[in-house]
């Protein structure tokens, strides 16, 4: 099902090659979005700042999924596990081992990248629904290990401890740190998907056999794309460790992978920035609707159905289409 979404034809889809150019209109849009993000701690009460931080973190996870789902045509369901590996390692390093959280984050990202590389070796030979299921199964293995390896992971109860250094203890200080990091990461990812390498990935998405006959090493490209995507998911996971100061198997569970994918889809697969919109939409729904009704999951479900019916290309994808159409 998701496979179909991922392979919206490039012509109708939002990821046309023209997305590269930095037109004045785009620059203005980016500047406005940037200003709004910087202003968040001044405009919102403390609690919402922590929500905004969470949105930024999960947007990075969704973007890392988008690299595969939107640009390479492989929809993964194991990125929650890669994300959570970094969270586990970071927290384990800084609480159980008593190391510095910064080193912990580096080790965490390295661990996540390694896991992603292993996943990639096993998964890149498949595509479509088989890829989906294989990554799902690989993610479940990580979940199983986290659940059963009680002496290290704390089993069901997880690992707790305060990871965040004092100078970023407040919500707004931490928000700005995350915002800066996410801005850099987003720029790097944007460069990555629009690089010649990224264009090759799009070529693979459109037709693997054509790329192969043109002389591209398709499996190598897929392997690198998966590992790089896992690297970014790992960064998100390491930042999440600092945000949450707590990790349990639910962080590496299937629901996490699904949540990341849904954020990418809601925002618009193959749009990269759509991930921010998707993450904001889902996290705010989760947080605000749930305090009014315990049926918030149904509302979330309904929202997905509506988006799939009326804007299968996602919110940002839809907006881009409308803009493109109005230009003639």
């Amino acid at each position: 099902m998701s496979r179909d979404l991922a392979s919206v034809p490039a012509g109708a889809g939002p990821a046309g090659p023209s997305a590269v150019a930095l037109t004045p209109a785009r620059l203005i849009a980016i500047a406005i979005a940037g200003l709004a993000l910087v202003a968040v701690p001044y405009m919102l009460p403390n609690y919402y700042v922590s929500i905004a931080t969470q949105v930024l973190i999960f947007a990075v996870l969704a973007m890392s999924i988008d690299i595969l789902a939107g640009y390479t045509g492989r929809t993964p369901l194991g990125h929650g596990a890669i994300f959570g590996t970094a969270t586990y390692v970071t927290i384990y390093w800084s609480t159980t081992l008593g190391g510095s959280p910064w080193t912990g984050m580096l080790v965490g990202v390295a661990a996540a990248t390694t896991v992603a590389a292993i996943f990639a070796l096993l998964a890149i030979r498949t595509s479509g629904v088989y890829f989906l299921l294989l990554t799902l199964a690989l993610g479940m293995i990580v979940w199983g290990v986290c659940l059963r390896w009680t002496s290290v992971t704390g089993g069901e109860n997880g690992i707790r401890g305060s990871v965040r250094p004092l100078f970023i203890a407040t919500h707004s200080a931490f928000y700005y740190l995350v915002l800066t990091a996410v801005a850099v990461i987003t720029f790097v990812m944007w460069r990555f998907v629009n690089s010649p390498f990224g264009l090759t990935l799009r070529g693979i998405k459109d037709s693997e056999s054509r790329m192969r006959s043109l002389g591209y090493n398709v499996p190598l490209h897929l392997f690198i794309a998966f590992t790089v995507s896992g690297f970014f998911a790992g960064i998100a996971g390491a930042i999440y460790a600092m945000f949450n100061s707590f990790v349990s198997p639910s962080t590496v569970a299937l629901t996490q992978s699904v949540a990341g994918l849904l954020m990418a889809i809601t925002g618009g697969i193959g749009t990269l920035f759509g991930s921010f919109v998707g993450a904001a939409a889902i996290i705010s729904l989760e947080n605000f609707v749930s305090s009014y009704t315990e049926r918030w999951l149904s509302i979330l479900g309904l929202m997905f159905v509506l988006i799939m019916v009326f804007a299968p290309e996602g919110i940002v994808g839809r907006i881009r289409m409308i803009l493109a159409r109005s230009k003639g």
Partner: peptide, 10 residues
């Protein structure tokens, strides 16, 4: 647990 934490913060 993650949702709990979020709700407790809220």
């Amino acid at each position: 647990p993650d949702v709990s934490l979020q709700k407790a913060r809220r």
